[in-house]
Every structure is written in C-alpha cells, then in structure tokens.
Simulated assay, not measured.
Amino acid sequence: VIIYVLFLFLKKKKITLSSIRLNKVHIKYILLGILMGCIAHMLTVFFGRTQHYLLTGEWLTAEKIVGTLMESSKNISFYSIMMIGFSVAISEEILFRGILLKQYQRMNIKSAIILSAFIFSIYHMTVGNFVFAFVMGISLALLTIYTGSIVPAIFFHFLVNEIMRIIMHSPEKVTETYFQVMVSPITNITGLIFFLSILTFLFIKVRKNNQFQSEKVKFFDGY
C-alpha cells in the first residue's frame, strides 16, 4: 500500500525514478550493500539480546532465540518473506533516502543525513529500536550518497529485516547452529569492527568528494 501511494505521489509530481536515486548502479555497490546488510544483521542480534537483558536481566541463548522465532515464523512462507521484505525495503528507501534525504540536502548533506536518520528512527520507535534505527539510518544515507543510488540500500535494508526469517526456513539444527555463531562475543566484536570500518570508509569518501558542502536541489525547490 505504501509503495502504491508513493508511486501515485511521484506520478502526480512528475518525479522520475532517477530523481529519487532509484537508478541502475554498478554490481560492486550492490555487493557492498549486501555485505553491510549481512554485518548489520549480526548487530541486530546483539542489540536484541542486549535489550532483553536490560529488561529481564537474562541473556537470550541461541536455543531460546530459535524457540521464539520458530513459533512466530512457522506459518510464514518463503515467498511471503521475499515479497513483504522487498516491499518494505523499497517503500522505506524511496521515502527516507529517495525523497526526504534529497529534499533535506537543501540545507547541507551532513544535516540531511542526521535529520533523515532521526525521522527514520522515530518511524521505527520503540525503546530498543531507536538508537539502532538511527545508526542504520545514517549508514543507509551514507551508502546512498556514496553510490548515487538507493538500490544498494534496498538490499541492505532487506537483509537487515529478513535474514532471521529466511534462516528459520532451514532445518532446526542448522538454525540453532547459526544463532550459536551469532551470539558469540567474537562474532559480535568482529561484526562491529567491520561495520564501523565500512562506515568510516564511506564517511571519508563522501567528505573527500565535498559532499558535505551546502548543496541546493533545484528539483525540490518548488515544494
């Protein structure tokens, strides 16, 4: 429904897909988005366990995670996961990185990144999700500016949301082994280092290209 409304809005305003950065991009940038999505997924497991610990004083084990997810995912088909997952990723990236991020660049890109990430985090508002969604919003914005397209961010967004549900369609033993790896401190620390390294790389590249200078976006000046 959100995608349909967004495309009606774009058509009414005569906005082209390339104007909202929904354009073709080199495969290496899509692979970068996929890599970031997989690493960020590790961080979702860590944030989820941390939130549970703060609320209950108990760390979730791999077995408990699998038990909970198996119950909630048993009636969800793989086809539904793909369709719903990409629908959410596409609609949110068009809205937050395609429209809002570009419109806020009327101020400057640094403000645009922070403001779009802040609104993105409010949109996903829960006590546990706010900080994580804000970090993801900044990551997705940097990736979009660096690649010039929201396509890598769509893959990034899809994987963060849906890897868990995809894994749940594996045999239970495989799933449990997977989450045992995910809850490992070594995995968490390694994932965090990799993710921060990629963000630092994107930040330096964007800054070096003078993308943080004030930049008018004439297309949006009308409204």
Rank of each mutant, 00 (worst) to 15 (best):
T68V: 12
E215N: 10
Q51I: 13
G137F: 10
N209Q: 15
I2T: 11
G57A: 04
V135Y: 08
L17F: 12
K218E: 13
F9E: 04
T147D: 10
S72T: 09
K102E: 08
T144S: 13
L43R: 09
F219V: 03
K14V: 02
I3E: 02
T187N: 04
K24F: 08
V45Q: 05
V151W: 02
E215C: 05
E176I: 04
G137C: 11
I34P: 03
L202M: 14
I76K: 12
I138F: 06
V127T: 11
I113F: 01
N75P: 00
L60G: 06
S184H: 08
I84H: 10
R165W: 08
F220M: 11
T175Y: 00
L196A: 13
I189K: 08
E93A: 01
K11I: 00
A62N: 10
V160C: 14
V45C: 05
V127Y: 14
L6A: 01
L140N: 03
G148F: 01
S139R: 08
T16H: 15
A112T: 03
Y223V: 01
H41I: 00
S73D: 06
L199N: 15
Y178K: 12
S139E: 07
F156A: 05
I154T: 07
V131K: 03
F212D: 15
M83C: 03
I114Y: 04
I15D: 06
T44P: 15
G191A: 02
S170P: 00
I84W: 12
S214N: 13
S72I: 06
I166F: 15
T147Y: 09
R97C: 00
N161P: 12
A141S: 15
T56K: 10
K13H: 11
N210H: 14
T175K: 02
V206D: 07
L192Q: 12
T126W: 03
E63R: 12
K102G: 01
N129P: 03
I27K: 05
K74F: 01
A40W: 01
E92Q: 12
Y104T: 00
M164G: 15
F195K: 06
M107E: 05
L69V: 02
Q105T: 10
F46K: 13
T50Y: 13
T126Q: 15
L202W: 03
G222P: 00
L115C: 01
L17D: 08
F118V: 00
F212S: 13
V174N: 10
E172L: 15
I84L: 09
S139Y: 05
F120R: 07
L69A: 08
V183H: 07
L8R: 11
F96M: 14
F120G: 05
F130R: 05
A117T: 05
S77F: 09
L192W: 09
V135L: 13
M182A: 15
K74T: 01
